[in-house]
Amino acid sequence: MLYIKCPHCGWRSQNEFSYGGDATVKRPELGKEVSDKEWDDFVYNRKSLRGKHWELWQHLSGCRQWIKVERDTATHEIFKTLKASEEIS
């Protein structure tokens, strides 16, 4: 079971969180013309990376905040966690 540092609550076990996918995907702005390709990339196309990866988790059974987690998908090592409002650097 992973041990995730919620930027709001501190260290918590994985079973308090739910996984939310790739954190680097940006939703196209509302009302903006988007090509089929761009929309497909936003909705469907994801890289299945081996290694460091920024992903979203929601602290569902805690503060209910969505957070960003930098995790190695192969080793499960977590390098950094950010609040939803913080930009991935």
Binding site: S18, G20, R27, L56, Q58, L60, R64, Q65, W66, A84, S85
Partner: peptide, 13 residues
């Protein structure tokens, strides 16, 4: 609820 929170916190803060 999670869906609304997702958009409020991440997409349209």
């Amino acid at each position: 609820l999670s869906h609304l929170e997702y958009y409020l916190q991440l997409v349209w803060p």
